[in-house]
């Protein structure tokens, strides 16, 4: 009988070490607050050890983690009353504190907030994880044409929003 634990050479510990930032950032990109991102992060890695899938390669594991992170984020969106009960005064409590965020990105943060979650997801995988449209489509079980169209629409919306912010700043300035 072999008792597995998270030793340095353990596959699960390795997965946590290697993909923790990726999973966390993808979760945050979708839910846009730390509390929910924390919950999703933990759930993803718990699912990993509970189901212990047989991975053919690192890329396979990465794709699995992306898929499960996306699924957990969807569940999070649906799951709890408190997540959907928008108490205005609490809205910003779980955001990345301003001092931790690089300066000058408020407009980008706001623009991202205004995007539907599926677009934020695709934007993140494309621009941060540098995945191709085909890779994203495969990881999310979508058609490449769907991903391409989401990406195009997201870019348009972001451009519109960011240009709007810039124009506002100019007027105010």
């Amino acid at each position: 009988m072999q008792n597995r634990s998270l030793r340095a050479d353990d596959w699960a510990a390795e997965a946590l070490r290697k993909y923790s930032d990726m999973v966390y950032r993808l979760a945050y990109a979708q839910v846009r607050n730390r509390t929910d991102a924390d919950d999703i992060f933990q759930e993803v890695f718990i699912r990993l050890v509970k189901s212990s899938p047989e991975f053919e390669s690192d890329e396979h594991m990465k794709a699995w983690l992306i898929r499960v992170t996306v699924n957990c984020s969807k569940t999070m969106w649906l799951s709890s009353w408190k997540k959907r009960m928008v108490f205005w005064e609490d809205k910003d409590l779980n955001r990345i504190p301003a001092e931790e965020a690089p300066a000058g990105n408020e407009a980008l943060e706001e623009a991202l907030d205004s995007l539907p979650v599926k677009m934020r997801r695709v934007i993140h995988l494309f621009y941060y994880e540098e995945m191709s449209v085909d890779e994203i489509a495969e990881a999310l079980s979508e058609k490449p044409s769907t991903i391409r169209s989401q990406l195009t629409r997201a870019r348009k919306l972001l451009r519109k929003k960011l240009i709007g912010e810039e124009a506002k700043r100019r007027v105010q300035g």
Partner: peptide, 11 residues
């Protein structure tokens, strides 16, 4: 900008 913004987002 997007990448820079995400650098601070870690568990």
């Amino acid at each position: 900008d997007y990448r820079k913004m995400n650098e601070t987002i870690t568990p």
